[in-house]
Simulated scan of single mutants.
Amino acid sequence: MSVQELFVAAARKCLSVGRKSLSVSQSLDLAAQVSAVSLGLKPALLYDSNGASVAQVQQYLSSLQSLQLASESLLILDLNGNSLIVNAGAVRSNMEQVAVVDVCHSLDKPAISEAQRRGLGSVMEGLLQLLEGFQQLHEPGKPLCIQEKCEEWNLCTVFGVLLGFPVTYWFDQAESFENCLSMTPLMVVTASATWQAGGTGHRCRLYSFSVPAALQEETQSELENWRLRLLERFEQQNVLKDLSISRSTVTLPSVTL
């Protein structure tokens, strides 16, 4: 079997829900994302292709690792029922260069928050200690489950860091889960590449995140650092090719975070 066929077979065997399996295209997109995490091109991926359980995602990763298709250092993080495939080393290198945008519903417009950036740093340091401690236990085939510890975390904010975004959103959950992004022009940044495994190229999206257009200047440093780090890491591997980073502006009547 080719590398692509092995990835597709693993996805269909491990991640089926009822009688529904992932399509070939979905399986290849997932394979490309896992490869990007293995290579450190992104810190983690949030599994949301279908309703597969954390145990199924763990089985999928373990299958890839047994076939030497994914790094042995990757682990599954069960964050309050959300499944993430994580490269802890890449998370640490990303967390210190993230801007936090306060989008509380009570605000007239989004604003950079240094206080929430400091608070996020404390949360992420605690999470990294859990990840690294779990790795040292060396219990292959088991996910790291975090339930009670993350009840007070804003998961939208934490996901932004775990997924490698240079800008992440925060809102006061005690106040409201709504936000002030309605009809706010957003700059959407997308990074795509071609996955070369097996010799046949498959185009996939590695990143997609937004920044309030009015805050482009204030977040320029984080955006440029993210771009340069991605380019540097991209040049150090040969699994993904033809990196493309694009920007567009959208204005939506409502934004769900």
Rank of each mutant, 00 (worst) to 15 (best):
E217V: 04
M187L: 04
F165P: 00
S221T: 07
S21F: 03
V101S: 07
M124I: 04
R229N: 14
L41A: 03
L41E: 06
C180H: 05
E148F: 11
C150S: 15
G141Q: 06
Q147W: 05
L131F: 10
A32G: 15
S73I: 03
G51R: 15
D242T: 08
N238R: 09
L128R: 01
K142L: 10
K13E: 13
A213C: 12
L130S: 06
G40M: 04
R92W: 01
L240K: 04
D172Q: 03
C145T: 15
T168A: 02
G164D: 00
F159N: 09
G141I: 08
F159A: 04
V91H: 12
A174W: 01
K149L: 08
E224L: 11
P212V: 04
G133Y: 10
M183A: 12
V101Q: 00
V24I: 14
Q147A: 07
E224N: 11
S106R: 09
L74H: 01
P43W: 02
A11Y: 09
N154G: 09
A31L: 04
R247T: 02
Q4W: 10
E72K: 15
L144K: 07
L120G: 11
N179W: 08
S244M: 13
L231S: 12
M124W: 02
G126T: 11
G198L: 02
A214H: 14
S246V: 05
V189W: 10
V158H: 06
F177M: 00
P43V: 00
S71A: 15
S71I: 02
V8W: 01
V239L: 08
E5C: 08
